[in-house]
């Protein structure tokens, strides 16, 4: 059948079309509106409402395999925190995260002339997941006696007045795995801090029930969430420019899906006729 050959298109042709579409839409610049959705607005408004000097903890729970989605979120969120003069405390449950977290915190802090130890700290990596969170909830200094650079955490001015998670004003978890649920179960529920999250797009739908139940006050889902936050803090970067190819390729995929279905039904109908 003439139509059936379209059901057996070499998938490499589709890969090539997608690649060309991404490259073309990155090179050809055009503006697309990026309105902030309610979950993204929730995080933005919370950070905006915090008084100067409030403590925000960021848990960088991702590694380089999710960098493209979560690193832009981290950078946009850090811009917002530092522009509001909030004290930022970074940590991670992932072995692959320290390099990315360190890079994000130091590069953004430098733009706002923030000093390490006074305005922000990076506690580094510790294994344990749930037990680490419980340990931090009881005593931050036994969980992290030293920071990422080997300095005694008890002597760092940015941590003065913080004994445990109970003194954290807001926790933002950037996660590529199950850490959001772990933070909710062992951290937020027990130590009663407010929490928002940023996650990969794949995890996005699973997080919506926590928004509905108000266990999360906001959510950045995938590159779109990152782009919305970049637009809100007026620091348009990789996530915003990534929305052009994202939109173009989505249209192409929708066309492919419709085309595949039309060809499938035509071939099925002609198959029935021939039989």
């Amino acid at each position: 059948m003439a139509v059936e050959k379209y059901l057996r298109i070499d998938r490499r042709i589709i890969f090539a079309i997608i690649t060309v579409a991404v490259i073309a839409s990155l090179i050809v610049k055009f503006e697309l509106p990026i309105p902030a959705s309610e979950p993204v607005q929730g995080i933005y408004e919370k950070i905006d409402s915090l008084p100067q000097g409030s403590r925000v903890m960021i848990s960088f729970d991702y590694d380089p395999s999710s960098k493209e989605e979560l690193q832009p979120m981290a950078i946009a969120f850090l811009h917002h925190c530092f522009s509001k003069d909030l004290k930022v405390i970074g940590m991670t449950h992932y072995t692959g995260a320290p390099g990315l977290a360190d890079l994000a915190m130091n590069s953004v802090a430098k733009q706002y002339q923030k000093t390490y130890g006074e305005d922000y700290v990076f506690l580094g990596y510790k294994p344990g997941g749930a037990s680490l969170i419980i340990n931090m909830g009881e005593n931050l200094y036994t969980a992290f006696p030293k920071d990422f650079y080997g300095k005694d955490t008890a002597t760092l001015p940015a941590l003065q007045g913080v004994d445990s998670l109970r003194q954290i004003n807001y926790l933002f978890d950037l996660a590529a795995g199950t850490m959001i649920e772990t933070w909710l179960v062992y951290g937020k529920e027990k130590y009663k801090f407010e929490m928002g999250a940023g996650c990969t797009a794949v995890m996005g739908p699973d997080m919506y029930p926590f928004l509905q139940s108000k266990q999360l006050n906001g959510l950045l889902g995938g590159l779109k969430g990152a782009a919305e936050y970049e637009a809100l803090v007026n620091k348009k970067a990789n996530a915003v420019s990534g929305m052009r190819p994202q939109s173009v390729v989505h249209v192409i995929i929708i066309i492919f899906v419709i085309f595949g279905n039309v060809v499938f039904f035509i071939s099925k109908r002609s198959g029935v006729r021939n039989a």
Binding site: I23, E68, L223
Partner: peptide, 11 residues
């Protein structure tokens, strides 16, 4: 969207 984001980031 997630898989495309990875491709976009690399490109």
């Amino acid at each position: 969207m997630g898989r495309l984001s990875l491709l976009i980031g690399r490109i």
